[in-house]
């Protein structure tokens, strides 16, 4: 079976090179645990990773060579070296840190507000049935509205400066957090809640000692999807008119015809977005060591 398998895989790589490598990159960045779950030898993993990088690297090098050889001027599709130069230039001049800081601040504020509101509303709706019956239909109806549709209203209400941008991000973050917390509280094991009742825990103690720890794993997932949406909405917010921020760099690059700057800003988004997600995961992992879950291999 092995040779046939190898032939098939090689064939697939050669024929469907670009989609396959994209898919593999996505899979490998999203779920590194999948590699650990399979008892393959280490080299196979490295080889697959290298094979996945082959196509994008080859394309990049070929484009670089084509531009250097004068086959094309690379004005609209800048070669990697020019993107790198732009990136380094922006970083050295302090432009990139300044814009990145503005964007991070917006995401942080919007995420903070969205998480606070989403957690509170989710906890209330999850714990009290009456609140759920009253609130949930309205919130679900609001959730059905594409969040970008709020932009004109937010600008009218809050002006074109920071407030409307932060409000838009907060709205984007609110819904996944609200849904995640409410769903998780409703799904807490009745049997564990009864343990709390037998030991005569009151409402606040029940929430603190039983419900919150029980929903923590689901809460982390809700926070991560909220954060992902936060990064999505900050771009939309910065498109609606900003004088700084990574989204401004994108618009600026478009209007002044600087594609290298656009790509540099996109790379900055990818790096910072991934980094914040990693920080969130790393910060919450110590609290989830107790889990008896499929994704958690026991470390002896």
């Amino acid at each position: 079976m092995r040779p046939i398998d190898g032939v098939a895989r090689g064939h697939a790589d050669a024929t469907w090179s670009i989609p396959m490598s994209l898919v593999r990159m996505l899979v490998e960045t999203e779920a590194p645990a999948a590699d650990l779950a399979q008892p393959v030898d280490a080299f196979a993993g490295v080889r697959r990773f290298a094979l996945g990088l082959l196509i994008p690297l080859a394309l990049a090098l070929a484009w670089e060579a084509a531009v250097r050889a004068g086959l094309t001027d690379g004005r609209l599709v800048p070669p990697p070296s020019r993107i790198y130069e732009t990136f380094v230039g922006l970083a050295a001049s302090g432009e990139l840190p300044r814009h990145a800081a503005a964007t991070i601040l917006r995401v942080a504020l919007g995420f903070g507000l969205g998480v606070a509101a989403g957690t509170l509303a989710g906890a209330v709706a999850g714990y009290w049935a009456l609140a759920r019956v009253l609130m949930d239909p309205t919130l679900q109806a609001l959730r059905a509205i594409p969040s970008i549709a709020w932009v004109p209203l937010f600008i009218l209400w809050l002006g074109i400066f920071e407030e409307s941008k932060i409000a838009l991000i907060a709205v984007g973050v609110f819904f996944p957090v609200y849904l995640g917390v409410m769903g998780a509280i409703l799904a807490v094991d009745r049997k564990l809640v009864e343990v709390g009742r037998v030991f005569r825990l009151g409402g606040p103690a029940m929430i603190r000692r039983i419900l919150l720890p029980a929903v923590l794993p689901a809460y982390v997932v809700a926070l991560r999807s909220g954060l992902g949406l936060g990064w999505m909405f900050v771009v939309a917010a910065e498109f609606m008119g900003a004088s700084e921020g990574l989204g401004y760099l994108l618009i600026d690059g478009q209007q002044l015809g600087k594609p290298a700057q656009i790509v540099a800003a996109i790379i900055a988004f990818a790096v910072i977005g991934k980094a914040t997600d990693w920080i969130l995961t790393a910060a919450t992992t110590p609290f989830l060591r107790w889990q008896d879950a499929f994704g958690q291999a026991e470390t002896p």
């Binding site: 049997k191 564990l192 009864e194 343990v195 009742r197 037998v198 030991f199 005569r200 000692r209 039983i210 720890p213 029980a214 923590l216 107790w290 889990q291 008896d292």
Partner: peptide, 26 residues
């Protein structure tokens, strides 16, 4: 629920996020 009445259920119902000692102290 009464402080002088304790119960052991059919399942252990230990709280998974507490250590064994933490569960006993609960």
């Amino acid at each position: 629920p009464h402080e002088k009445i304790g119960i052991v259920f059919q399942e252990p119902r230990l709280l998974p996020w507490l250590t064994v000692a933490g569960n006993v102290e609960f």
